[in-house]
Structure formats: structure tokens, C-alpha cells
Amino acid sequence: MVKAELFGKKLKSPLIMASGVFGYGDEYDFIDLGPIAAFCTKGLSLKPRDGNPMPRIWETEAGIINSVGLQNIGVNRFLEEKLPKVSGLPMEIITNFFGNTVEEYVEAASILSGRKGIFALEMNISCPNVKSGGISFGQDPHTVEKLTKAVKKVVDKPLIVKLTPNVTSISDIALAAEAGGADSVSLINTVKAMAIDVKTGKPVISGGLSGRAIKPIALKAVYDVSRAVKIPVIGIGGIYTAEDVIEFIIAGAKAVQIGTAIFSNPNVAADIYRGLMDK
């Protein structure tokens, strides 16, 4: 259970830190990085972005809603300032990226491509497509196939397409990514959600739900997608324990990503690894 392989490369574990909870890899210098196979950077865009106003985080009964709004330092500053710092760490680096137009995606991907020290690219397609009225790229199979093809043309590294669960049929989207040439799909991204303050009678946050609450949703998505596509599936959503990881592997995942769980336990990956060794 502790061995894994992606894109022909043996990994020391199936455990990857998810995008957005691990910064650019240089903040968690106080934890045991040993068992972590790879980490995904915060989503990178062509130009730096400031993201959404506060509050950006809200605790719910069994998870959290975030509306960080993809604040990031941009691909260029990542390559100049962060990549040299994190290249020496004992984990593979997966650069998560996004755009608001196909051109932005392609340009960001081509800047990241060819860089030594990057293991794979993960393309977040949960972003609004400004040219089609703000509907997210990841909601339309045709757009996903076109976007994946366009990006695949300019990258020489494995391309993981990260899927949103906010769709009617996630398998159709996965098939479109595969048809476009994706080397893998990772799922799920956060589930659309909102919290309301009864005192003010207004929403306090509108964003994406993650954590324990979404695990069953993610398991079903991984199960369905694994049966639809031939490329490797990376499972994400509410993973806290070794038991959770095994469930995702049984559902069909070749590796998993850990997100929200790191907020309650920075050493969650090491603890899960130990749990997997005992199974």
C-alpha cells in the first residue's frame, strides 16, 4: 500500500500534498517531509493575483469553506524565488496552474514547461472562462478537450487535469481530458458552498467546501472516473487517515492528495504513512 508509481516514476508513497494548503513548499519546514511523495504548489497564474476579500475561510460542521480566490505570486516569481528554494526538498514538485482564457493557460504552461525540478503540471480547470460568460472551463467537455489539447502541445512534462465536482457527469469531463491528451486526472476540487449568518441575515462566505464532508462525494467521483478512463486517477477529498487512503485506492486511485487535513495535523502525511505500513 505504500508504494506508488506515476508517469513511469517510482514514488516513495502514494501521498501528495494538495494545491492551496502547502503554499509553494517552503512553509512546512518543521514537519516530517520524508513520506510525502510530492506536493502541488498553490495555483499559479501568468500574472500575480490578489484574490478575494476577507473572510476567506469559514468552518462548517464537517469541513471548511474557502474563498481565497486564487491569490498567488504568478509563474515567473515562483520560478525565480521559490523553485530554487524547494528544489532540494525530498519531494517531487507538481506546479498547479490556471488561467481565465485558453491563451493564459497555454502561456503559463509553456513558461513552467521545460523547467528542471518540476515533476508534473496540474491544470486547475475550475476557473471561470471569461470569454464564455464566466462558466468554468471544467464544466463543458468540449472546452476541456480543446484546452487540454492546446496546453499539451506546449508542455513536455506529464499533465494532470484537476477536475471540479460541480458538474453533471464528472466521467464525461474526465473522458474529454483524456481525449485531449491528459496524462492523468486528479479529483475532486472543492464543492460549491455557502455559509449564512443568521444575525445579519446575509451570506458570510461563498466558496468551495473541503474536508471530511466531501469524502463520500470524492469517493464516488473517483470510482466512476476510474472505470471510465485508462489514465491514472489521483484521488482527493477529505483524506485524514490511512483507512481513507485505502478506500480511495480501492475506488481506483493510483495516488492521493491530502488537503484540509493538514490544518488539523501538519504531520498528517507521516501519520498516514505509518498507518499504511501497518496495514
Binding site: F22, M54, P55, W58, P266
Partner: peptide, 10 residues
């Protein structure tokens, strides 16, 4: 409001 407390999640 904080989630990670260590600078990783903005």
C-alpha cells in the same frame, strides 16, 4: 481568521 497558521494558505 486562520487555517494553517504558518503562511501556507493565504
Amino acid at each position: 481568521r486562520m487555517a494553517c497558521g504558518v503562511g501556507a494558505c493565504v
